[in-house]
């Protein structure tokens, strides 16, 4: 059980990379990249987890009453999720632009469009 969360994060990253590399549609590749990103969320939060700990939010629990999980990794992951979404939007915008200019989103076909 000790290594499972980290191995799951590593597996998600590798599956995302495999799908990204063998993708025949750029939109599918952007989705695969989103899966790669989600592996970083899992790894970050798995590093910060404390068994028996609770969320570091003291609106409904008096501070110090119960052990808390690491808040710093949560802050990192939180902004990572939002920025990841906007970067995915930028990538999709580029894919739409490629489709408009070259009429195709298949990376293999694109590679043959010289000049």
């Amino acid at each position: 059980m000790n290594l499972l969360p980290f191995l799951c994060a590593g597996w998600l990253f590798l599956v995302g990379c495999y799908a990204l590399a063998t993708s025949r549609n750029l939109i599918h590749a952007v989705g695969a990249l989103a899966v790669c990103q989600s592996s970083t969320y899992v790894l970050l939060l798995a590093v910060g987890y404390r068994s028996g700990g609770t969320a570091p939010v003291f609106s409904d629990v008096p501070p110090g009453a119960r052990p808390v999980v690491d808040p710093v990794v949560q802050a990192l992951t939180l902004t990572d999720v939002v920025v990841g979404a906007t970067v995915t939007a930028l990538l999709l915008a580029l894919v739409v632009q490629i489709a408009k200019r070259h009429g195709t989103v298949d990376p293999d076909e694109l590679r043959e469009l010289r000049g």
Partner: peptide
């Protein structure tokens, strides 16, 4: 170890926030 209780940076962040 996953779920370990050694989070030095977290403890300081909680203290600073409080």
């Amino acid at each position: 170890e996953f779920g370990g209780s050694h989070h030095p940076y977290g403890a300081r962040a909680v203290a600073a926030a409080l």
